[in-house]
Design a protein around this nucleic acid. Structure first.
Length: 428
RNA sequence: GGUGGGGUGGCCGAGCAGGCUUAAGGCACUCGCCUGCUAAGCGAGUAGAGUGGCAGAAACCGCUCUCGAGGGUUCGAAUCCCUCCCCCACCGCCA
C-alpha cells in the first residue's frame, strides 16, 4: 500500500479533523501526525547512514581489486551496519503503527454531502412512481411465499441457520429471471462488461476495498485458507486492476457481475428477522466503475440512474436518498441509497447503495492511470452500486404485484425471462 | 499432493562461480536531425515509491528503497541460504 494519503493528511490536517467530526468517527489523528514526524526524522538519519555504507562498500570493492588492505574500513562499516540495523528496526516499527492507523481512517466526505449524525438526517433526492393502492390488506412476502409454496423458511433454517431461505419452483425461477434481466440490461443498454469473479477472495483483496481490518466480524472466513466469502461483488470487481498502471485511454472501465453475497449480520440481531429481507446469503447484481478522478461525480449520477432503471422497467415505486455524513460507509465519499416501496411495511426499504469512493480504495489497491499528456501516474476513482439486490427485488415484486387471491402478477419486463409466464398462482 | 523448470523495467530478454551493472541488448514509445510523403537511417530520452533541499506548490537537484513476497548471510545480494506465493510441464486425485 502506498502512503501518499499520509502526505495529504499531513498537509490538510484541519480538513481531516472536520471530516472526522462530521462522520462522528473516533480517530487518534494527533497520534498519527506525531508518529509521522518521528518516522521522517529517523528515516532521514538512517538514509544518510546507508548512503555512507554504500559509498564505503564500493570503496572496499575497489581496494580489494587493487590488492590493498581494507580491514580498517571494514571495521568501520561493521559498526555502521549495527547502527543502521537499530535505526531500521525503529523505523519499521513506527511504520507498522502508522500503517495500522491509516487503515482505520475513513474516507473524506464530499462537499455536496449533507452534514448529519444518523439516518434521520438523510435527504430525499427524488421519488419515482406511486405506491399501489390495494382494495385489500397487502400481505408480507413471507405469507405470500409460503402460501404459494415458492419460499421455504423452515428448511432454510434446518439446512443452515436462521436468515437462510430456500426458494422453490417459481420463486427460484423468478430469482434467476431477475439476475438475467439485470445483467442483460446493464451489459447491452448501459455498457458494462460482464464478469464472473471468484466468490472467495484473499485478505489483501478484502483489505483493498476497506472491508478489512475494520469489519472482519461481518465476514465469513475459511478456517484453513487465506480466503473469505465476499460480502459483495464490489470486492473482486474493484480489485480487478490492483497494482496496475492503466493507460488513460482505457478509462472509464465499467464492470457488472452477478454473485451471491455472504454477510454475518453480526450487529443486526433482532432486526428484520422474518422473511428474506436480511439474509446471510443473498444474490446481487453489482455495478463497478473505475474512472478518471475528474469524472467520478458525473459517473456516480449515471451509475445511480443505471440502477434506478431496473426498478423503472419493473415498475416498482422507489425513492433516492443522499446519505448524510454520519450515516455513510467507511470507504464512501458520497452515497445514494435507492429505496423500494414495500407495501406490507408501508415504507421504503434499501435495495441499492451507490457510492463514489474517490481514490480511497484506489490507494489501498494501488490502481493508477498514466495521464494522456504524460507525467506521473495518478490514482483512479472507484465507484460501486447494487444494480440491484436480487432477493429484495424479488420481495418487492411479490408484494407490489400481489392480488387479492394471493397470486402474483409477473411484471411485463420479466415475462420473457420467465418463459412467457404471466402470473404465479398456487401450485396444483 | 509429488517431481522438475521458471518469475528481471511498458513488452521481450541477458546477467545468477556476490563488488567496473548507476540492470546489457532488442522492441515499443517520445523528442530532435535528415527527407517531395511514408519507410529506413542518425542522435537523445523514457519505471515506481519514499524522503530531503524551498515557508508552501511546480520544476530541478540529492539520497534511500524496489529484479514474485518476506526473512537471513555479508562491509556489499538480481546473484548465496530459508520460508511462502504464483506460472509452466509431467504424475496422482477430482466436477
Amino acid at each position: 500500500m502506498t502512503l501518499l494519503d499520509l502526505k495529504w493528511i499531513r498537509e490538510n490536517e484541519e480538513e481531516v479533523r472536520l471530516m472526522l467530526e462530521h462522520r462522528g468517527a473516533n480517530f487518534p489523528l494527533d497520534e498519527l501526525l506525531k508518529l509521522d514526524a518521528v518516522r521522517r526524522e529517523k528515516l532521514t538519519a538512517v538514509e544518510a547512514l546507508k548512503a555512507r555504507r554504500n559509498d564505503g562498500s564500493k570503496l572496499v570493492g575497489s581496494l580489494k581489486r587493487e590488492g590493498k588492505d581494507a580491514s580498517a574500513l571494514l571495521d568501520e562499516l561493521r559498526k555502521l551496519d549495527e547502527e543502521i540495523g537499530n535505526l531500521d528496526a525503529e523505523v519499521s516499527s513506527i511504520q507498522g503503527k502508522i500503517d495500522e492507523l491509516l487503515l482505520q481512517i475513513p474516507n473524506r466526505v464530499h462537499a455536496s454531502v449533507p452534514v448529519g449524525r444518523d439516518e434521520e438526517e438523510n435527504v430525499v433526492v427524488r421519488t419515482w412512481g406511486d405506491p399501489p393502492n390495494f382494495d385489500f390488506e397487502p400481505k408480507p412476502h413471507w405469507d405470500l411465499g409460503t402460501t404459494l409454496d415458492i419460499m421455504d423458511f423452515e428448511r432454510g433454517v434446518s439446512l443452515a441457520q436462521s436468515r437462510f431461505t430456500v426458494l422453490k419452483g417459481m420463486g427460484a425461477r423468478m430469482e434467476r429471471a431477475l439476475i438475467q434481466f439485470m445483467l442483460d440490461l446493464h451489459t447491452t443498454e448501459h455498457g458494462y462488461v460482464e464478469i464472473e469473479p471468484p466468490f472467495l477472495v484473499n485478505t489483501a483483496t478484502m483489505r483493498g476495498t476497506g472491508q478489512l481490518p475494520k469489519f472482519a466480524e461481518e465476514l465469513y472466513k475459511c478456517a484453513d485458507d487465506d480466503l473469505w466469502l465476499i460480502p459483495t461483488a464490489e470486492v473482486p470487481l474493484t480489485n480487478m486492476h490492483a497494482g496496475e498502471i492503466l493507460s488513460e485511454d482505457r478509462l472509464p472501465i465499467y464492470y457488472t457481475a452477478y454473485t451471491p453475497c455472504f454477510r454475518r449480520e453480526a450487529g443486526s440481531h433482532g432486526r428484520d428477522v422474518r422473511g428474506m429481507l436480511r439474509q446471510h446469503q443473498f444474490d446481487k447484481v453489482e455495478l463497478v466503475k473505475i474512472c478518471h478522478p475528474e469524472k467520478s461525480y458525473d459517473e456516480l449520477e449515471r451509475l445511480t440512474r443505471n440502477a434506478e432503471k431496473v426498478l423503472q422497467l419493473l415498475e416498482l415505486p422507489y425513492r433516492v436518498i443522499c446519505l448524510c455524513s454520519g450515516d455513510m460507509g467507511f470507504a464512501a465519499s458520497k452515497t445514494y441509497d435507492i429505496e423500494v416501496w414495500l407495501p406490507s411495511q408501508g415504507k421504503y426499504r434499501e435495495i441499492s447503495s451507490c457510492s463514489n469512493c474517490e481514490d480511497f480504495q484506489a490507494r489501498r489497491i494501488n490502481t493508477r492511470f498514466r495521464p494522456r499528456d504524460g507525467g506521473r501516474p495518478r490514482f483512479v476513482h472507484t465507484l460501486n452500486g447494487s444494480g440491484i439486490a436480487i432477493g429484495r427485488c424479488l420481495i418487492a415484486v411479490m408484494e407490489n404485484y400481489q392480488r387479492a387471491d394471493g397470486s402474483i402478477a409477473v411484471p411485463d419486463a420479466l415475462v420473457p425471462y420467465m418463459g412467457g409466464i404471466r402470473e404465479i398462482g398456487p401450485l396444483r
